[in-house]
């Protein structure tokens, strides 16, 4: 399915494929645009304390619901807080939640998947049934279940999203480990007496780093979206800490008098998700030569 979802089928009509043309290397546009968007968001999040015109939590009753203008480029919210400053600081939440959730998901998932795929047997069967069970939950539902258990909050949301990502990484790592364990370099390592842990960490892991990196990039966009959804539902980052999803929730009550409050945070989420998705696509084109277009 992943293969089908790619847009790398260079046929233009129902006519038989044209004779092969001279190879022509195209610019990897998704990679460039994705990297630019991600860099933009990461830099603005990192520099938020210097870029933000005001304190993102400072309440100013006199400046309530001001539309975008000279003093407040993106307007203010119903408590008079500067929307631009809140968006910049909200970017920090998005980046941190994304990074930590992917680290949890990748760390636990890859470990489980590698061990499962490499050892095979009953351990593999057991772990995979558990993974199948977790994958039987719609992702957001599982995240909500975990938050319902741990209580709402920023750290809980990160943990919940990380847990949701575990099966995705575990399946990928397992499939890669299963394919790698019969390869000659693994047999050679085993023949010279290398221990299982060393074979997994030193020989198999670097060989599957490419697909894992692509998965991590795509998972990052999913994590940003999930955090925004949880915060929108009031289960993620809690006020007054600014988060893009939380800002959209706050905009709900004043939607028709302060439309800007609902526009900018949504744009920020879309830009971040688009950036990470494009980066993932671009990396896939770069790292998987079979899918490379026009080469």
């Amino acid at each position: 399915m992943a293969l089908l979802e790619r847009e790398g089928w260079p046929t233009s009509s129902l006519a038989p494929p044209a004779p092969a043309r001279a190879p022509r290397r195209r610019a990897n546009l998704p990679l460039l645009v994705g990297a630019a968007l991600v860099a933009c968001i990461a830099v603005s999040a990192a520099l938020a304390p210097w870029l933000a015109p005001r304190d993102p939590t400072a309440i100013d009753p006199a400046a309530r619901l001001l539309p975008p203008g000279p003093g407040h480029p993106l307007g203010t919210d119903r408590l008079g807080r500067d929307v631009l400053s809140r968006i910049l600081y909200g970017g920090r939440v998005a980046v941190v939640v994304g990074a930590v959730a992917v680290a949890i998901g990748a760390g636990a998932g890859v470990t489980l998947g590698l061990v499962s795929g490499y050892r095979a047997g009953w351990l593999d069967a057991l772990l995979m049934r558990a993974i199948d069970g977790l994958m039987a939950f719609p992702a957001l539902l599982l995240a909500i279940l975990v938050v319902a258990s741990l209580g709402p909050g920023h750290v809980q949301a990160m943990t919940a999203i990380g847990i949701v990502l575990i099966p995705v990484f575990a399946r990928l790592a397992r499939a890669q480990a299963l394919a790698a364990r019969a390869q000659e370099f693994v047999l050679a390592a085993r023949a010279v007496g290398a221990r299982d842990l060393r074979i997994i960490a030193v020989h198999i892991l670097p060989n599957i780093a490419g697909p894992l990196l692509i998965q991590a990039t795509v998972a990052f966009s999913g994590a940003v979206l999930a955090e925004a959804s949880l915060s929108y539902l009031g289960l993620g980052t809690q006020p007054p800490t600014p988060s893009w999803g939380g800002m959209l929730q706050e905009a709900r009550d004043v939607l028709f008098v302060g439309a800007w409050m609902a526009v900018w945070p949504g744009l920020a989420i879309a830009a971040a998700v688009l950036g990470w998705n494009l980066l993932g696509d671009g990396l896939r084109d770069l790292l998987d030569p079979r899918l490379r277009r026009g080469v």
Partner: peptide, 12 residues
Amino acid sequence: GLAIPTFWLGIL
């Protein structure tokens, strides 16, 4: 379309 959160589209 993949990047736009469903709830934001709903709000819009």
